[in-house]
């Protein structure tokens, strides 16, 4: 069962074309990683899926429904959530208020305030602090929780590990086992290829806006990834 399908998607970042005819699919409950260098078009692709950046050509289909060109809030309520690059918490709201924003327009589902506090118990202690004052790792937990509280079917995670200490990255990825138990599908955009391969079922590699490699994470060899990542011919 596929949940999300991209068909020949072109997205532009301002006047520059960021992706060229990208085909991609995510199964129900599947975790898909997208890797690639800076500027490969990964973040732009995520923005296009949730409707923050318009899709110029091609189709985006969510569970059989064409969501191409739909407004972002409608796509969100159809069950897509985004953990954005750089966390982007509402800095003048408290942690709990940030979480409440996630819950306010939520679909029915397993994630409640109590459930996310259980997932990240450290958040409970800082719930009345302003989100802007938290450490990077704490902010990432809040950002993930805020997205989870919408009870998405598809969770888009953009560079979760960016700027975080390795132990914190491990803690956060450990929680994804719990998150995946609820049946949510994942798209993880990562620059850390090793991490991406470890936590995903399948993997896409983007180079200059084009898919250069696709396959089951456990079967792809690191040197193939390297070749696809840098665009070198297998020499």
């Amino acid at each position: 069962m596929t949940l999300l399908t991209l068909e020949k998607v072109d997205v532009f970042y301002r006047d520059l074309q960021a992706t060229f005819g990208v085909d991609l699919s995510v199964g129900q409950g599947e975790a898909v990683a997208i890797i690639g260098a800076n500027g490969a078009g990964k973040s732009t692709l995520l923005r296009a899926i949730i409707g923050l950046t318009p899709v110029r050509n091609g189709r985006v289909v969510l569970d059989g429904r064409d969501i191409t060109g739909l407004r972002c809030d409608k796509i969100a309520r159809a069950g897509v959530a985004l953990v954005p690059e750089g966390r982007r918490l509402f800095g003048s709201l408290t942690v709990e208020e940030n979480l409440l924003m996630g819950a306010a327009r939520a679909r029915p589902g397993p994630w409640t305030l109590a459930a996310v506090y259980e997932l990240f118990p450290a958040m409970r202690e800082v719930r009345y602090s302003l989100a802007g004052n938290l450490s990077g790792g704490q902010q990432q937990m809040v950002s993930i929780s805020r997205a989870l509280l919408t009870n998405p079917r598809l969770l888009l995670c953009d560079e979760l590990s960016l700027g975080l200490a390795p132990t914190i990255i491990n803690d956060i990825y450990t929680c994804f086992t719990r998150i995946r138990e609820t049946g949510v599908s994942l798209i993880l955009v990562e620059q850390d290829t090793v991490k991406a391969r470890d936590v995903s079922d399948r993997l896409y590699c983007l180079l200059k806006g084009q898919v250069t490699l696709e396959g089951a994470s456990s079967e792809i060899r690191m040197d193939a990834i390297k070749a696809a990542y840098f665009g070198e011919t297998a020499a």
């Binding site: 260098a37 800076n38 500027g39 620059q191 290829t193 390297k226 990542y229 840098f230 665009g231």
Partner: peptide
């Protein structure tokens, strides 16, 4: 630009 990008890429991998 492509060449410059290609030259930078390995450093970031």
């Amino acid at each position: 630009e492509d060449k410059a990008q290609a030259a930078r890429a390995p450093a970031k991998g």
